[in-house]
C-alpha cells in the first residue's frame, strides 16, 4: 500500500470562511489522504502543535481575511524555532500576487488561489512531500 499521506488543514486567526477548506479537505479524503481539520479560530501555536502531535506531512493554511502575511510568518517562525524542516507548508484563499512572493520567500511552498482545481493541490502535495517514510 502506498504510504499514507497526512495533512493538517488549518484556519488561523478570526476568519470564518471555511467553504474552501472543507472542499479541499473532502477532496484530499477522496484522494486517500488522512486530513486533520483544526476547526476555526486557531492560533499559530495551536496549528504547529497539532502538526507536531499528529506527525503530519503537510500543513495547508486557508485564509481569506487579509491577515495572511502575519499568520504564515508566525507559523513559519514557530516551525523554525522547533527546527522542523520536513513539513510541507502550503496555503489558499485571498492572497495577492505580491504577497505570494513574500510568502514563498519565507518558506511557504505554494499558494493555491481562487479557481485552483483541487486535483492540482492533491498532485502538488503528493509530489512535494518532505518526510521520508
Amino acid at each position: 500500500m502506498d504510504r499514507k499521506i497526512k495533512v493538517l488543514i488549518a484556519k488561523p486567526g478570526l476568519d470564518g470562511h471555511d467553504r474552501g477548506a472543507k472542499v479541499v479537505a473532502r477532496a484530499f479524503r477522496d484522494a486517500g489522504f488522512e486530513v486533520i481539520y483544526t476547526g476555526l479560530r486557531q492560533t499559530p501555536e495551536q496549528i504547529v502543535n497539532a502538526a507536531v502531535e499528529e506527525d503530519v506531512d503537510a500543513i495547508g493554511v486557508s485564509i481569506l481575511s487579509g491577515a495572511h502575511n502575519h499568520c504564515f510568518s508566525e507559523i513559519m517562525n514557530l516551525l523554525k524555532q522547533q527546527s522542523i524542516e520536513d513539513i510541507l507548508v502550503f496555503g489558499g484563499g485571498i492572497i495577492p500576487e505580491d504577497d505570494v512572493k513574500f510568502l514563498k520567500g519565507i518558506g511557504v511552498s505554494e499558494i493555491f488561489g481562487p479557481g485552483t482545481p483541487t486535483d492540482d493541490t492533491v498532485k502538488f502535495v503528493r509530489a512535494n512531500l518532505k518526510k521520508d517514510n
Binding site: 499514507k4 479537505a25 473532502r26 484530499f28 479524503r29 477522496d30 484522494a31 486517500g32 489522504f33 488522512e34 486530513v35 486533520i36 481539520y37 483544526t38 476547526g39 501555536e45 495551536q46 502543535n49 497539532a50 502531535e53 499528529e54
Partner: peptide, 29 residues
C-alpha cells in the same frame, strides 16, 4: 475512514481549545 478511498477527515481536535496548549496534554487522531 472512507471504506472506498481509505482517506479520512479527522475532526475531533476541534473541541480541544485551550487545553491543547497545556504541555502535559497530548492529542492524537
Amino acid at each position: 475512514s472512507s471504506p472506498f478511498t481509505g482517506g479520512a477527515v479527522l475532526g475531533d481536535r476541534i473541541r480541544m481549545g485551550e487545553i491543547s496548549m497545556n504541555s502535559r496534554f497530548y492529542f492524537r487522531s
